[in-house]
Amino acid sequence: MGLLSKKDSKLILDPLADNNPITIQVLGICSALAITAQLKASIVMSISVLFVLGVGNVVISLIRNIIPSKIRIIVQLTVVAALVIIVDLVLKAFAYELSKELSVFVGLIITNCIIMGRFEAFALGNGPWRSFLDGIGNAAGYGVILIIVGFFRELLGSGTLMGVKVLGDPIEKTGLYAFGYENNGFMLLSPMALIVVGLIIWVQRSRNKALIED
């Protein structure tokens, strides 16, 4: 970390574990869970949020002294909406199938609480460089959870990873399926996303007792 001072690297590393936006701050769950049935969709969603939050934090931080505090929510929403439109158009142009699968959830990045939360809590009070790091760190923490959930749901639910059949072919009974293994279709249903996140929280808080609520 020659490039970053100790304080700056903390901005990136903290949200990855002990101050994770999803499991600790409870932000950004809205659009996160419904798209985690597949690993690919989770990764694309994480990258989109990384872009929106990183750039958005810089923009808000640059104009933070000009925005009148009464209308700041509308200003923030406009900035995010503009960035999300960029993401949406890029997805439609280069990954049309995927953008169909994500459907309205790309648009819902706008109201992802993680973004407004970081704008309010960090970008309004800090310079552009630190805001950028904070944005990247939080989006990465969000992405980590999304990718973990997507990994388990796709692996256990359809026996594939990124569409590749890693466990063998369920119809021709090769690989694991030769021993009578069955896909758990239940993992693909939306309620399981909630339960998987619940289990992640359980694991994380068992390892770090300081995070336990009373």
């Binding site: 249903l189 909630l194 339960i195």
Partner: peptide, 23 residues
């Protein structure tokens, strides 16, 4: 409730179970 699940964790799991019910 098991200590690490208290608060947020158990709420997630209950919501998941309710969602299964709503299906």
């Amino acid at each position: 409730v098991p200590a690490p699940l208290r608060g947020l964790g158990i709420t997630f799991i209950i919501t998941g179970l309710m969602a299964i019910g709503f299906m």
